[in-house]
Amino acid sequence: MAYLNITARQRKKAFIYTALSLASAFALFPVFWMFSISFRRNMEIFRLPPDLLPPTWTTEAYEAILTNPDYLIVFRNSYFVAFSVTFISLLFAILGGYSFSRLRVRGSRMMQLFIIGTQMVPPVSLIIPYFILAARMELYDTFFGLIMTYVAFVMPFATLMMISYFNTIPADMEEAAMVDGCSRLGAMVRVTVPMALPGMVATAVYSFLLAWKEYLFAVTLIQDPDKRLLPVSIAMLLGEHVYQWNVMMALSVLASLPLLVIFIFLQKYLVAGMTVGAVKQ
C-alpha cells in the first residue's frame, strides 16, 4: 500500500513537471525566436525547414542599430520619458497614498472609487480630446504633454498600490516620532516613507513598465522624429516596403532589455505589483 502511494505521488510529480516544462516552452518560444532571428542575416530567416538557431551567427543587425544616431536618440527619448513618468507618478502616489492610508480625508471612499474608476477609462476614447487640447495648448510634439497623459493613466493604480502598502505598515513608529516632537510631515518623510521602500519599488516598476510599453499616445501626440519613442520606431519598421526582420528583432531585443533587467532583479516586486489591489482594495 505504502509502495503504491509513493509511485502515485511520483507519477503525479512527473506529470506536473512535464506539463510545466511544456507550458514554459510555449511561453518562451516567441522570446527565443526574437533572439534567434536578431543574430541572423536577413536572407537566412525564411528557410525551410526552419533553422532554430542562426545558420550563420552575426551581429550585423545590432551594429546597424547601435551605429545609427537616429536610433540612439529614440532610446534616449524612451528612457527619459519612462523615468520621468515613473518619478512623477511615484511622487504623487506617495503623497496621495499616504494621505488616504493615514490621515482622515473627508470623502475618502468616494475619492478612491473615483481613482479606481479613472483607471478603467479606455485610452483610445480620450485620444481626440488629447489631440485637440495638445494642439491648442501648444503641447503637441512635446515630451511634457506626452508625459502628463502617461501620468494620468499610470497614477491611479500607482496610488492604489501605495495605499495598500502604507496600510501594511504599523502606525506605532510614526506616532512615537510625533511624540518625540516630529511634525506629521516630518514623521511621514523620516519614518513611514523609508519603511515603504519595497512598495515604492513595486510602484516604480509598474509605472516604468507601463510608460515604456505605451504606443497609442506616443504615435498620436508626437510627430517630430527627434522625439520619437521606441514602440513607434519599431512599428514604423513594420510599415516599410522591405522588411528587415533581423533589424526589427534586434531592436525588439534592445527594447526589451530594461524589462529583462526588471525581470531578473526585481521580479518579487513585479509580482507583488501585479496582484496588489486587484484582489481587494
Binding site: V31, L230, S252, S256
Partner: peptide
C-alpha cells in the same frame, strides 16, 4: 513583460 509592439512584431 513584453512591449505590445514587440509582441505584435
Amino acid at each position: 513583460l513584453f512591449t505590445t509592439v514587440v509582441v505584435a512584431t
